[in-house]
């Protein structure tokens, strides 16, 4: 009993070792359940055991298909997402600093945010063709909204007492922005970027479903159509790793930039 609760205490604790242990434990759990289900379910169309998926992955890698797809997908996201973040932050900034914009463009953007813009993907592809342009637009539009919203919220949430204290030192508008408002909003912005990153991955896959000659989405669709469940799952797992590592990175960044929000 004692050792179990000691183990749980360790897993609950802060620190890198505990976090790694938690991650390994949940991965192991998923693998065990997966293996168990795969040994019960007969149909290899429905589910494939982990080892076969790993095999499919190494075959994809050996044939070079994995790298072609990775370059297509990661390349498109790597170019589109930073631009989406930049646009999101800029528009959020504009909305937070202009009452006129907030009153006129704000409601429109909020409405757009609640529309599943991703459903317009086929339309963008019809307009912009099967190349990079359509993917860029779909990823950018779909992932910029959470960043835009959290930027505006963060900037507006700034403690007005802190602003007044800065003003009492005769700080200029720009100095207040640089030393008070922006640092205050930064953790908000990064959590928006974290959500945006997950959306960017969804967007690129959907875009590749509808029109692409390479990419994870393309490969998943192709594997699905040829009933190759092992390859399909291999790419889904790669996507999961991509999403998780991005999320962990942004969480780490948030902690780094806002240490005062942790242990208070």
């Amino acid at each position: 009993m004692g050792s179990i609760s000691g183990l749980l205490d360790f897993l609950e604790s802060k620190g890198r070792a505990a976090a790694t242990a938690r991650l390994l434990l949940s991965v192991a759990f998923v693998l065990v359940v997966w293996e168990a289900v795969a040994s019960v379910v007969e149909s290899r169309l429905l589910i494939v055991p982990p080892l076969e998926v790993a095999q499919a992955l190494s075959e994809e890698s050996a044939s070079g298909a994995l790298w072609t797809n990775a370059v297509a997908t990661i390349g498109a996201v790597a170019i589109s997402f930073p631009i989406a973040a930049l646009i999101g932050i800029s528009v959020g900034l504009a909305l937070a600093s202009s009452r006129f914009l907030a009153l006129t463009a704000g409601p429109l953007l909020t409405a757009l945010n609640s529309v599943p813009v991703i459903a317009l993907a086929p339309l963008f592809i019809a307009w912009l063709g099967l190349g990079f342009a359509s993917k860029f637009v779909i990823v950018t539009i779909f992932s910029m909204f959470p960043i835009l919203v959290t930027t505006e919220v963060g900037l507006r949430a700034t403690d007005r007492h802190l602003v007044e204290a800065a003003r009492s030192f005769n700080a200029s508008y720009w100095q207040i922005f640089r030393t008070v408002t922006l640092p205050f909003a930064l953790p908000f912005i990064i959590s928006g970027i974290r959500v945006g990153w997950a959306r960017a991955l969804v967007a690129i896959i959907v875009a590749e479903f509808f029109g692409a000659f390479a990419g994870f989405g393309f490969a998943i669709l192709a594997a699905g159509q040829s009933f190759d469940t092992a390859v399909l799952l291999a790419y889904v797992i790669l996507l999961g790793i991509l999403g998780l590592s991005g999320s962990l990175f942004f969480e780490w960044l948030e902690r780094r930039l806002a240490p005062w929000r942790q242990d208070q």
């Binding site: 007492h161 802190l162 007044e164 204290a165 008070v180 640092p183 005062w260």
Partner: peptide
């Protein structure tokens, strides 16, 4: 007419920059 360095204020609320 505006704040200046000849005066400095300590507010009732905690106004330190947390970062």
């Amino acid at each position: 007419t505006h704040p200046g360095f000849d005066r400095a204020m300590v507010f009732q609320q905690d106004c330190l920059l947390p970062w």
